[in-house]
Structure formats: structure tokens, C-alpha cells
């Protein structure tokens, strides 16, 4: 593992290793909630928010509990449970004490408990043996990258709404095709930096 600057990882997670366009992770909410820019921006912020905290949480869980006990193989189930519980808890706290934040992004929290981009980031962090700061950069960057992707898609879909499509392609069909085209464009960035 080459010692990469956390900032490089941060930018790489946005552009060259985008969760959506490079790994196709978190597609369910990406397709479901990318109909309008404001909503998708809200969801994107929620994903970034959750990614930041779950990456930190799972880093600590993995390195201070699972590794010392030789239980690394349990990381899948432990990460899933900790993400689900954390999002639940976060929703309650935000709803109670930060009403404005709740109205902006809290209502999206239940949607992203099972977003696989969030589990993906935690797992990549382990596979790629990131340090704490690198993990943090990767987590925040992935969130912003995911937001970028869904907002771009919402922008495209707002325009598409007014065009005539073959019936079978409406909704998820055309969205997947556009995602593919956008992914092709993002491949252009992919040679710039290697983070794995």
C-alpha cells in the first residue's frame, strides 16, 4: 500500500472512483429518488452525512474490536448492523434536537439504512487497508461523489420528463442507460490516480 494523502483519496472518491459511476453501488435510491434536483440533493447530503459517521464508527469497531479478537470475518454482519442501528439512532436524535436538519435531510435517513454504497465504503476501507484519516477522506469523498452523481442524474431526468420515450424505457430503464453513459464519461478520469 502506497501512502496516499487523504486529500488525494478524498478527490479520487469523488471523480475517479465514484461510488455510482465506477462501482454501481447504492443504485436503488439513486434510481428511486433522482426525479428532482432538490430532493436528490437532500438525499445526497443525507448519504454524505451518514457515510462520514459510519466510516468513522466502523473504522473504530473494526480496528479496536474485531481485529484484536481475530474476528475480521464478522465484518460484513457487524458493519451492516452498526450502520442500521446508527442510522436509526441518528434519525431519532436529529428529529428531536435539530428539527431544521430533520426537515432538510432527516426524512431521507430511513431510505439509506440499506444503501449498499454505505456498506461498500466501510468494506473498501478494510480491503484497501486505509488509515483513519484516509478512511475519513474516502468516506466524505464517496458521499460527495454520490451526491454529485444523483444530482447530475436528477438534472438529466428533469429534462427527459418533457421528451417522448418508448414506453418500455420510461423510468428506471432510461435512468440506467443514462447512468451507463455518464459512467463512460467518468471513466475518462479513472487513469489520473490509483487509490487501490
Amino acid at each position: 500500500m502506497i501512502e496516499l494523502n487523504p486529500f488525494i483519496i478524498f478527490f479520487a472518491a469523488i471523480f475517479t472512483n465514484n461510488m455510482i459511476f465506477s462501482y454501481f453501488l447504492g443504485m436503488c435510491s439513486f434510481i428511486g429518488v433522482s426525479k428532482e434536483i432538490p430532493t436528490s440533493l437532500g438525499l445526497g447530503q443525507a448519504v454524505t452525512f451518514v457515510l462520514t459517521f459510519t466510516t468513522i464508527l466502523n473504522y473504530i469497531l473494526y480496528h479496536s474490536i474485531l481485529v484484536p479478537l481475530n474476528l475480521e470475518y464478522l465484518r460484513f454482519i457487524v458493519f451492516i448492523i452498526s450502520i442500521a442501528a446508527f442510522v436509526q439512532l441518528l434519525e431519532m436524535v436529529v428529529e428531536r434536537y435539530f428539527p431544521n436538519l430533520y426537515y432538510a435531510l432527516g426524512i431521507f435517513l430511513p431510505l439509506i439504512t440499506v444503501n449498499c454504497a454505505i456498506l461498500g465504503v466501510s468494506l473498501f476501507m478494510v480491503i484497501r487497508e486505509y488509515t483513519f484519516l484516509q478512511s475519513l477522506g474516502f468516506g466524505v469523498g464517496s458521499g460527495i461523489g454520490w451526491t454529485l452523481a444523483i444530482v447530475a442524474m436528477a438534472g438529466a431526468r428533469q429534462k427527459i420528463k418533457r421528451t417522448k420515450l418508448p414506453r418500455g424505457l420510461e423510468g428506471p430503464g432510461i435512468t440506467l442507460i443514462i447512468t451507463g453513459l455518464m459512467a463512460l464519461a467518468f471513466i475518462g478520469f479513472s487513469g489520473i490516480v490509483q487509490i487501490q
Binding site: 448492523i81 452498526s82 442501528a85 436509526q88 439512532l89 431519532m92 436524535v93 428529529e95 428531536r96 434536537y97
Partner: peptide, 14 residues
């Protein structure tokens, strides 16, 4: 542990 934590949270925060 997490279930306990969530139940407590539900009783207090929620």
C-alpha cells in the same frame, strides 16, 4: 447491545 441502546433511545429521545 445495539437493540438495548435503541430501546433506551426510543424511551428517552423518541
Amino acid at each position: 447491545l445495539l437493540a438495548l441502546l435503541l430501546t433506551l433511545a426510543d424511551r428517552t429521545i423518541g
